[in-house]
Amino acid sequence: MAVYKRAYRAYNGPITAERWRFLVLTRYSLSQLFSSRAFSWFMMITLLPVLIAAAFIYVSNNAAVQAALRMGTQSILNVDGSFFAKVLLGQAWMGLFLTCWAGPLLVASDLSNGSLPLYLSRPLNRAEYVAGKAAVLVGILSCVTWIPGLLLFALQSSLGSGGWAWAHKSFVPTIILVSFLWIAVLTLISLATSAWVKWRIVATAVTFGLFVLPPGFGEAINGVLRTYWGRVLNLPYLLEVILTNMLDTPMQNHGPFTNQQVPQFAAWIVLIGVCLASLLLLNKRLRAREVVRG
């Protein structure tokens, strides 16, 4: 197909490894996402709480700055499990906002433009398609969850007393594990709703709604049935249950029944169940050709 000849020429050049070819989807999707200046700014904004937390760690470990700021007591500046729980929960919400922005862009537009046959007529299967798109969200969400979490841990370890890192070594796997659980929940819910709704704006609304509307419904159930199990519909709450249990810190006040907490195992089951349900929905919806029954 030389341009000057305008004649067809077969391709006999090198071929990339099949195993990592799904990352082509990731690369192009990331490039498309970050071509929007607004998204780049938003991504930076989601990291502001991390900068504030870093400043907090710096101040809490620097007596001279504390004196300059006339801070009398150090008790409010403890960098402990509670501190990391707050930071991670804050970043979990930031991750949700990012997902609502980026997630529907990945799949909904492909489905509404009918481009799945183009992908799947190539040596790429549906699992690789999902992996390629999910890797975008995993990458972005990692940047606002476990990576800053570990950086804050490293900062505190370097600035704190000698034994701090060793005494709190369990924070590292907790930060990673809980972050990845939340990333999986956000990613799969976002991809599944995008695949079902197909319309980007509606997919954004539905994704966000799944995190903010069921908690209200759950609290209504709690109020009527005098129970606390309605909170299993509150996904951020379930994340908090797991995180605070693993970091061994108290939960925030959640109104009535605060002391009666959903068990950690139940939180795990619900969040993993949500992931599996999302995968099932994706499997049902992501087809090269839709088949109408009847």
Partner: peptide, 23 residues
């Protein structure tokens, strides 16, 4: 109609070729 939204024609064809295995 089967397209990737928001792409130029050239980028679209390049993208598809890369998925097919071209560097």
């Amino acid at each position: 109609d089967s397209f990737i939204s928001g792409m130029t024609g050239l980028r679209f064809v390049r993208y598809m070729a890369e998925i097919s295995g071209l560097p």
